[in-house]
Nucleic acid binder design. Sequence first.
DNA 1: TAAAGGATAGTGGTCTGACCACTTTAGAAT
DNA 2: ATTCTAAAGTGGTCAGACCACTATCCTTTA
Lengths: 220, 220
Amino acid sequence: MENSRPSSKRFLDIVSDLRTIIKEEGAVIGDKLPSERVLADRLQVGRSTIREALRSLELLGLIETRRGEGTFLADYKKHQLVEILSTFIMQNPQSLKSVDDTRRIHEKAAIECISNDPELRTLPVWESFLGKLKGIDLIIREELLQEIVVVSGNRLSLKIWFLLKQYSRVPYHEAMAEDEKEIATNLLKEMMNGNSHLAIMWYTDWLDIVIGERRGEHEC
Amino acid sequence: MENSRPSSKRFLDIVSDLRTIIKEEGAVIGDKLPSERVLADRLQVGRSTIREALRSLELLGLIETRRGEGTFLADYKKHQLVEILSTFIMQNPQSLKSVDDTRRIHEKAAIECISNDPELRTLPVWESFLGKLKGIDLIIREELLQEIVVVSGNRLSLKIWFLLKQYSRVPYHEAMAEDEKEIATNLLKEMMNGNSHLAIMWYTDWLDIVIGERRGEHEC
DNA sequence: TAAAGGATAGTGGTCTGACCACTTTAGAAT
DNA sequence: ATTCTAAAGTGGTCAGACCACTATCCTTTA
């Protein structure tokens, strides 16, 4: 910790020092870190400076603080940085199309993933969906798509998908129409048979109907 | 800004409020934000709370502060947060796999997008790459992949890809080996011919070689 | 003795006011 | 009109004081 020079941003040095401390103490996820007051004393800075560094790390999802208890090494897997970034970046209306495109990328990938995995594509949940699609039950669009993305097993992809869903133009919360049910049924069947290519085709058809998009449009 | 409830983490609310302010004022990259003291007064909180929020955003690279001048909206594209994150996360068990999988999802989507677009797949840049691949030039892996993701035209996807790239196990910064060049050449050719399916296959082969992954592994 | 209860210390969350170092600006002296 | 200087404004930091909450220990009670 060689911060002899006044580097104009002490709290950045603190962030670095904290990493060193965590490393030295061999702290593992869930472990408790020294209290703010102790850290301030040990690093010879004010408590507020320590806090600025800690709050930064908290927003990054690297630590977790519980009032009255202390500060703990967090489980990074939550990927909450994506959320923060998104709230700042996604307010650009012009990027709505890229949001839709990206969401579609993840849905396609999930369908493909399941189609190519003998275990996943034979899960009973798909039969269950087929049954519901035959009947007169109301099925919300996102029920099926969410199940697909969840089952595919990629947690980060799921997280991103959830995020994008919020900003999407596609009315996910509505129920499927009759002709949609038919297409969804075909999608499921091909997926269960392992025909990823056909499943993707039905998926594309489905979205075309929902959004009423022009086929020839430049789409990626 | 309906934070009437004392949500136990005011500084998180402030982060949200700051976004609102930025939005309302239509601030663009490089614009100056209100001073810390003004913000504290306007949001009815102490200056230290404002600072905790601002420092967090600074570590994320969303704002930039200059002593004596003020706080400014930063250019997100610098991605400086990733450096800090990576030093903390580095080797994380199965979280890394989902990062790799997700990155691959976006690369595949980009390849497919370009293959299916007559304009994009005939761009001169691909011929240029083919030429370089024939010669003895050193070609860094990410040069090609980045170009592909960029050209695909989905800015959000590109942003996510940039983020994931930094966490990846794949040595993006290294140069391609000879056998890799051959595969990359095939990939490009099929892409330029519009055979997205074959292009994807070559892409998969390529990554298998680079990572040395077992073929049979459960992958999505 | 064992369970229930309450006082206490420790922790994060916040505010205030005070400096410091630096930059910009406006006004005074030339 | 130019130059120089003082003042105002800004981020950077610190110290001390509360508050709200949690865990712990110890007394009280059944």
